[in-house]
């Protein structure tokens, strides 16, 4: 029932843009060349989007804008109906804590925390995500265990091993459990599969989809691996939407 309600609240926004960009322009430093110059870009609620582009074309830069770490110098950046370009940096940090799950390419885990502590970490910084997690399970640890169990990470002694003693694929699954914790609306993944082998990549992406669907989250996924493209709802070719041409752009 609760799950339905959750999804309901998300689907009430169905069709609305989770991300809406207009006339955006961004450079890292005042003198640096413009990295991103995007006229118009929208991502719908619940969409699973694949972002593709050559190295140095600004994919990670775009993600850091969506996550509210950087702000555009010009234009409008609307995420989940908030004008990120108009929020203060503290407000953006709160925004990220509450609404965004972020997966890195690798080394996602904090080495001195246990697997469960790594997964519950987002709830330390966001009451909303803690409440979301507690709506599903009685305790944060139980919710972390539920997610880890889904991702097949609770077998054997894995739970009690230091996270540094997990394989890269296993670490990525723990990272997936972390972004799903407390059901943030927007999941962002920056090449999360590039350190996995081909079989694992597809399995990992499917796992992510499954969890996204359950949580009703939107997924923005960056990868160089064209073979994954077909699994997604839509592909955004950054070179097509980005009018700027960062200096180091080269085809992969």
């Amino acid at each position: 029932m609760k799950e339905k309600h959750e999804r309901g609240s998300h689907s009430s926004r169905a069709g609305e843009n989770v991300v809406a960009i207009r006339d955006l322009s961004f450079r890292w430093q005042p003198q640096a060349p413009i990295v991103l110059n995007i006229d118009r870009l929208g991502i719908d609620n619940g969409e699973r989007v694949f972002i593709e582009g050559p190295s140095g074309s600004g994919k990670s830069t775009l993600l850091s804008l969506l996550a509210g770490v950087s702000v555009p110098q010009k234009g409008e950046l609307r995420v989940l109906d908030r004008r990120l370009d108009q929020l203060s940096s503290v407000q953006r940090d709160y925004f990220r804590a509450h609404h965004i799950g972020y997966i890195f390419q690798m080394f996602n885990l904090i080495p001195y925390l246990t697997m469960v502590d790594n997964v519950t970490l987002p709830c330390q910084f966001s009451k909303i995500r803690r409440d979301n997690a507690l709506r599903r399970s009685n305790t944060l640890d139980a919710e972390a265990m539920r997610l880890l169990d889904h991702l097949d990470m609770t077998r054997g002694d894995m739970l009690h091993r230091p996270v540094t003693a997990l394989s890269v694929g296993q670490q990525q699954r723990v990272a997936a459990a972390r972004v799903l914790m407390g059901a943030p609306e927007l999941l962002i993944a920056d090449e999360p599969t590039s350190s996995l082998d081909a079989d694992l990549r597809e399995a990992f992406v499917r796992l992510l989809f499954q969890e996204c669907e359950q949580a009703g989250s939107t997924l923005v996924f960056v990868s160089h691996d064209a073979s994954l493209e077909k699994l997604f709802d839509r592909t955004i070719r950054l070179a097509e939407v980005n009018a700027a041409r960062p200096e180091s752009t080269q085809e992969h």
């Binding site: 940090d93 804590a97 890195f104 970490l121 910084f125």
Partner: peptide
């Protein structure tokens, strides 16, 4: 990592 989960 801490920044990604919302640490200021």
């Amino acid at each position: 990592i801490l920044r990604s989960v919302g640490a200021r």
